[in-house]
Write a protein that binds this DNA or RNA. Structure first.
Lengths: 182, 182
DNA sequence: GTCTATATCGGGATAGAC
DNA sequence: GTCTATCCCGATATAGAC
C-alpha cells in the first residue's frame, strides 16, 4: 500500500484491513506509522540497492559481463515494477534515510566512484557514469512512467505496452553494448 | 509545494502562508483542496505535455530536426527539474485526470501513434517509440532520481552532479543521433 | 475580498479488558 | 497478543463580521 499510495496517502486502517488485523495491533508491533514505513522501505530497498551496487563494483564490465548484469537487473525491475519509483519518491521525501541505509548495508560511495576508473571504460570520451545512468534510465523510466507513456503513446493498450517492454529488453542490451564498443 | 511534497503531503495552511494569505481565502478562491490541486496540475502539465506531443507529431525527425527538439526539450526540463516526477506521480495517483487533460488540450493519442509511421524511421529495426522513450528516459530520469543518483554515484556532491548533467546534454544528443543514423 | 473564529471529521495513537 | 473503545490533534472546510 505504501508503494501504491505513498507514505502520506496510506491509512493505517487500510494496512490493518489488508493484513486482516486492526489498527491497535499494528501499533503494538511497530509503535508508529513512521517506524512501520521505515521497516517496509528498508526491506524493499535492500535487494534493489545491493544490485545497483553490484552492477558496477569490481572492474567495469566487458561486453559479456554487461550482458549478464543487464539481464539480471531488468528481471529484477520486472519482478518489482513499482519499486523504483517508490524508492525515488521516498528518497526525495527523506534523503537522510538513504544515507543511513547505505551505511547499514556497508556501501561506501567512494568505492563506487573509484570502481569507474578500472577496466576498459577508461578510454571512453565520457564519464563512465553516463553509461551506467543511461542504462538505469532506459530500464527504470518505462516502468516508473508506465501510466503516462502507455496512455500517450499506446492508446492505453496494456497488452501493446507489455509487448513494447518485452521488445525493449533486447533494445536496451543492443544499445548499451553498442555504446561500450563505440 | 504540491510539486515538492505531493498532494497528500501538502497542507492548505502552508500554501496560504507561502501566498501571504490565510486558509479561508484559499477556499474562497478554489472551493476545495482538490480543485486547487487540479488547477495547479493543469498549469504545470500544460507546457510539458504540449512539448511531448510537439516533439513527435508531424513527420519523425531528421537528424537536424532531432537536434533542435532535443535542445528545446532538455532546456524545458532544466527550467522545471521537479515537474516530470510530479507529473508521473500524480498520473499514477489519478490516471483519469490525464485523459481529461489530453482531451482539453485537443491531443488525440491515435494521431500520435500514426505519426510514428511517417518519415525515415520506418526502416528502423525497432518500434520507433523505443527511440522516443529512450530519449525521454535519458533526459528525465537523471532529474527525477537526482537525490538518489547524486548520493550513490557522486558522494552527494551537488556541483559534481551539475557538471554531470551539463556534460550529459551533449552525451544525449550524440547517442540519439547515433541511434537515428544506425 | 479578506479576515477570525469555529464546526466537523478523519486518522494516528493509546487505554484497558480479555 | 488481540481486541474495542476512546483520546486527541491536525487539517479541511465554513460561518459570519468587517
Amino acid at each position: 500500500m505504501f508503494i501504491r499510495k505513498g507514505m502520506d496517502g496510506t491509512r493505517m486502517q487500510e494496512i490493518a484491513d489488508e493484513a486482516g488485523i486492526n489498527k491497535a495491533l499494528l501499533h503494538y508491533y511497530f509503535r508508529s506509522k513512521d517506524k512501520l514505513f521505515e521497516a517496509v522501505f528498508r526491506s524493499i530497498i535492500g535487494g534493489f540497492f545491493s544490485s545497483i551496487a553490484g552492477a558496477i563494483t569490481g572492474e567495469m564490465p566487458t561486453v559479456e559481463k554487461a550482458d549478464f548484469i543487464i539481464t539480471h537487473y531488468i528481471r529484477m525491475i520486472e519482478e518489482n515494477p513499482f519499486a523504483p519509483q517508490f524508492i525515488i519518491n521516498e528518497i526525495n521525501r527523506n534523503p537522510q534515510m538513504l544515507r543511513d541505509i547505505m551505511l547499514s548495508f556497508n556501501i561506501n560511495p567512494k568505492h563506487l566512484v573509484q570502481s569507474f576508473d578500472n577496466g576498459q571504460t577508461r578510454k571512453l570520451p565520457f564519464d563512465p557514469r553516463q553509461f551506467v545512468i543511461t542504462f538505469l534510465s532506459m530500464s527504470i523510466f518505462p516502468y516508473a512512467a508506465r501510466n503516462l507513456l502507455q496512455m500517450v503513446y499506446f492508446e492505453d493498450d496494456k497488452e501493446a505496452y507489455n509487448r513494447f517492454l518485452e521488445e525493449r529488453k533486447l533494445f536496451i542490451k543492443q544499445m548499451i553494448i553498442k555504446m561500450l564498443e563505440a
